[in-house]
């Protein structure tokens, strides 16, 4: 999604204003000359100025440009799905990895995106399972990254080498 430069500037300026306002609520707990709000205030003011500059620049150079530009791929539902499956997959991992464990979560995540990308589901699941297994052995069993074991927790002692 592409927006007009002036809108980008507006968003930047609003963010800066919010930061500057919030910085005023940061009162130093002790007698400090420059408190915790000082840098955020500077940054906020900077963003407001830059945002203002962008609004003006956008107005001067791009009066004839549309406010929003909708790229063509947004009309293709399959492509939109392929796009959104990525953040959805990460969120799925976030929510599922503790109860299900890494192995199951990673397998589902990998298979889900491959199928969305048009891989046949049998192949997708096979590739997903093998990859997840290898990654799990590499990271949890050998490198001792504390990945969740989920449903395998009671017997996880067997898998940590």
């Amino acid at each position: 999604m592409k927006a007009h430069d002036s809108i980008v500037g507006l968003v930047v300026a609003i963010l800066g204003g919010a930061i500057a306002l919030y910085s005023q609520s940061l009162v130093p707990p002790r007698h400090l000359n420059y408190g915790p709000g000082f840098f955020p205030l500077l940054i906020g003011i900077g963003l407001v100025l830059v945002g203002g500059g962008l609004i003006v620049q956008g107005y001067v150079t791009g009066r004839d440009k549309p406010l929003f530009y909708r790229p063509r791929w947004l009309e293709n539902r399959q492509l939109v799905f392929r796009f959104w499956i990525i953040p959805i997959a990460i969120l799925f991992y976030w929510l599922a990895v503790t109860p299900l464990g890494f192995l199951a979560t990673a397998t589902i995540l990998l298979a889900m995106i491959q199928i969305a990308n048009g891989v046949r589901w049998k192949l997708a699941f096979a590739v997903a399972l093998i990859t997840a297994l290898v990654v799990n052995i590499l990271f949890a069993s050998i490198l001792h990254v504390p990945l969740s074991w989920g449903v395998l927790t009671p017997i996880s002692g067997l898998f940590i080498w």
Partner: peptide
């Protein structure tokens, strides 16, 4: 201008968390 906006945004992200001096959460 857009480069500066990005830089300032990064600086803002860096201020999230504990203030390095007073230890206050921001």
């Amino acid at each position: 201008l857009k480069g500066l906006a990005s830089l300032l945004f990064g600086l803002f992200l860096a201020t999230m968390g504990l203030d390095p001096i007073s230890g206050m959460p921001r």
